[in-house]
């Protein structure tokens, strides 16, 4: 899932200050799951913004809406009925959602209310951790299902650096050393010898090194 986190209120307020009628749009996908931009957060943000502007002596009109998915044009189309009544759109979706809206409603300014963080998994209630960098060339098959690209602070592909202690990364005692995990896993799987194979220099083109990426499924395209 794509994770996100609400922007500092000051920043959001700065964006929307010039406008009187705001369309605040949440998304019922990833940002709902990571509690950053679902119906509940939309309500909370609207409330916070109301508090702020009312305190300043201003009433602004905030219309709350939550779309099933902001990264699909069909769902974004649902805003059409509200768009004329808004001076600006504040989106609580990830960057994809914000851009989809921006593309559809070119005449209206669109502002992000969240910072899109990373592709992650939830570790426990309220804790999300990065698990994938979207490098486009998955190597989990040879690293025991643990990704060194996403989880090693230095993206090392050939084993841990010298900074590991007690299985933790040198950058913080709270961060597990990905390579220690990989090693433990390989051992458990009886695949220790995998480790000794040198992983050649990675081709970063599928990771975006070759410019914006695109997937085209000929069979599905109309």
């Amino acid at each position: 899932m794509i994770t996100a986190e609400q922007k500092p209120l000051n920043e959001i307020i700065a964006y929307i200050s010039p406008y009187d009628r705001i369309l605040l749009v949440g998304c019922n996908e990833c940002v709902t799951v990571c509690s950053a931009g679902g119906r509940k957060e939309v309500g909370l943000l609207a409330s916070a913004l109301n508090l702020h502007f009312l305190k300043q002596g201003r009433t602004i009109d905030i219309k709350e809406m939550t779309l099933e998915r902001q990264c699909d044009p069909e769902y974004v189309e649902e805003l059409v009925s509200e768009i004329d009544r808004a001076d600006a759109i504040l989106s609580m979706a990830c960057g994809c959602g914000v851009q989809t809206i921006a593309e559809r409603y070119k005449e209206k300014p669109v502002f992000p209310a969240v910072n899109t963080k990373f592709m992650g998994a939830s570790e426990s209630q309220g804790v999300w951790v990065e698990r994938c960098k979207g490098c486009g060339d998955c190597m989990l098959g040879i690293t025991g299902g643990i990704c060194p690209v996403a989880r090693c602070s230095k993206h090392l592909l050939n084993g841990p650096c010298g900074g590991t202690s007690n299985g933790m990364c040198e950058i913080s005692p709270d961060v597990e050393c990905a390579w220690c995990l990989i090693w433990e896993r390989l051992k458990a799987l009886g695949m220790e010898n995998r480790y000794e194979e040198i992983m050649e220099a990675k081709d970063w083109r599928p990771a975006g090194g070759g410019g914006p990426r695109k997937i085209i499924r000929e069979d599905l395209s109309l």
Binding site: N28, E29, T32, V33, C34, S35, G38, R39, S122, S124, Q125
Partner: peptide, 12 residues
Amino acid sequence: TKCAACLICVRA
């Protein structure tokens, strides 16, 4: 229809 199957309730 609103549920995002996020599991938050399951855990909470």
